[in-house]
Amino acid sequence: METTIEHNCEQVVNNNHTMTPTIYRVEKNRRDTHDTFTLHLSPEDQPLETVYEPGQFNMLYAFGVGEVPISISGDTTEWPKLVHTIRAVGSVTNALQSLATGDSIGVRGPYGKPWPVEATKGKDIILVAGGIGLAPLRPAIYQILHNRESYGKVILLYGSRRPLDILFRKELEKWRSRLDMFVDVTVDSSDRNWNGNVGVVPRLIDTANFDPIDTAAFVCGPEVMMRFTAMALNKRGVSSDNIYVSLERNMKCGVGLCGHCQMSNQFICKDGPVYTYSQVRETVLIREI
């Protein structure tokens, strides 16, 4: 079917279309875990105008239901195709979960500041993810592995609640079998089939092998998890300037105009969501900021 998005750039003085979704088609909706799924999308007509980078997000629109911020979880070299991994938690994410191959989805983006994958070349890289937080980190992992020789040690530490919540399990196993990457996984509570670590993910940092002076850490997960992870990294000697976290707030516009994502003087949608821990360490500790 034809798209009839009318950008009318001539009539409208500037980029009003930042508020109008671009139509993508669902190529595949794959179930990852009991509550998480991955959408593979391709543009129906024109793709998003800007090339996206690891750590950026899009606003995904389910017809009539609403729009939510979701990080890009696929390989950014596959532009203009898009991959998003989503946990179904409420009205919009549930509607997205029920999309079938061929269905339309609205996309606005890409928004936000990316993980500094380029700028950290030459360093040891430690990626720490909690739960669905692995999804926004996956594009960074792909990009680092594409340029594997440009980095020192590469370590991925992942924590999930239970073994059945583990995201991208096959891929984790594949990465784990590589000789140029260290991967470790932990769960908060185990079951009979679990042979691995039990405990929270910051604990894995104490024993990981990296050069604290020359390491960049990319951390993504619930805010408390990121705080404890940053503390553990600090304890190992990694400076807060080299720890990157991705913050989450309510987002309606994604472009710094609606005020919903504001934290102190930051519009997290456009100034973040990726920050160095030193930029946000004090602020995130303030109650109800």
Partner: peptide
């Protein structure tokens, strides 16, 4: 800002000028 119309699983969006 815009209206969208749906035909089964597909839809189109038209900006409100």
């Amino acid at each position: 800002l815009w209206t969208a119309s749906r035909n089964k699983g597909n839809f189109t969006v038209k900006e409100n000028i």
